[in-house]
Amino acid sequence: MRGERLDKLLARLGLGSRKEVARLVRAGRVRVAGEAVRDPGFHVPEGVPVEVDGKPLALRRHHHILLHKPAGYVTSRTEEPSVYVLLSGFPTRDLFPVGRLDKDTEGLLLFTTDGELLHRLTHPRHKVEKRYLVHLERPATEEDRRAFAEGLILEGERLLPAALSWGEDPTWVELVLREGRFHQVKRMFQARGNRVVYLKRLALGLLELGDLPLGEARPLTPEEEGALYQGVGLFTECSQGT
C-alpha cells in the first residue's frame, strides 16, 4: 500500500484546503517519520507519525467545516448549484449540513461528519439558538416583538418563544430562534403581514460567522468545536486514531 497523499491527509484532518496545506508542506513545516517532507504528493504509509510545526498530528475522528454560504446555492448534494462545490479541498463525502439554508439565504452553514452532534444541534429538545439578520419590506413593530416573544402561532401550532430586536431602522432586525422549521423565518413574518427581503444566518449556538468571507469555508477551531459539543451535552470527539 502506498498510503495517502500528504496534502489530502492534511486537508482531510482539517488543516485547510488542499492549496493551503500544499503551501504549508512546501514551507518545510511538515515532518513524516521525523523527516521533513516538501512534496505535497508524498504518500504517507499507514501508521507513520506526522508532525506539523514540531507537534504530532492528532488524527481527528470527526470534521466540522464552517461555510459562509452565498445566495444562489442549494443545501443539497443532488441539486445544482450545490453548496458542496464551495467545499473544495475538504473531505466532503461524509460531511452533512447542520440544518439547511434556502437558496436565496446567506450566512453560517455548518457541516459535520458527526451524526450525533448534528442530531443534537438540530433537534428542538436541545433548543440551540440560531441568530439571523433580516431585512423586511415594512418596519417591524412592538406587536411583532411581543407576538414572537410569546410564541407565535403558525398554522395552528405554537412556536417556541423567539427574540426580535432592532436599532434605528426597524426594517433591519435580528431574530433569535430556538428551533428550525421549514422556511420558519419567512413564514413567521408572513404570518405578521410582512415579507422578508433579505435573510442571513449570523450564529448557531456559540458559533459565530465572524469575518469569514462570503463563499469561503474553514475548519472549526478546537475552541469552537469544544463549545459546540459542550453546548449540547457532548464531549469533544477527538482522538489519536481514526
Rank of each mutant, 00 (worst) to 15 (best):
V173M: 13
A149D: 05
T105E: 10
P56T: 02
S239Q: 12
V197I: 12
R26M: 09
R100Q: 01
R158I: 03
L15M: 04
A27W: 01
Y198A: 11
E208S: 09
P219I: 12
E155D: 13
E174L: 00
H123L: 03
G3S: 01
R26K: 11
P45Q: 04
D7M: 06
E179T: 02
D53T: 01
Y229H: 08
E143K: 11
E223Q: 15
A36N: 12
H126L: 15
Q190D: 15
L202H: 06
L204P: 01
T221V: 07
H135Y: 15
E208P: 00
T92L: 08
P40R: 00
L6S: 01
L9T: 02
E157S: 14
L133F: 11
F90S: 06
R201G: 02
L95T: 07
E4V: 14
H43C: 14
L15K: 03
V173P: 13
T171A: 15
K103G: 08
V232K: 10
R131L: 03
L86P: 11
E143W: 03
L101F: 09
A22G: 07
T141V: 03
L152E: 14
R145H: 08
R18A: 04
T78C: 03
A22V: 01
V98T: 08
H62T: 14
V32E: 11
P170S: 13
T75H: 05
L67A: 05
Y73C: 04
G231P: 02
S17N: 08
G16C: 07
A149F: 05
V83H: 00
G47Y: 04
R125C: 00
V128T: 08
E150N: 06
Q184T: 01
E224L: 12
D39E: 12
P170A: 05
Q230D: 07
R23Q: 12
F182D: 11
T171P: 11
P219E: 06
L10K: 13
F96I: 00
P70M: 10
D53H: 03
V32I: 11
D39P: 08
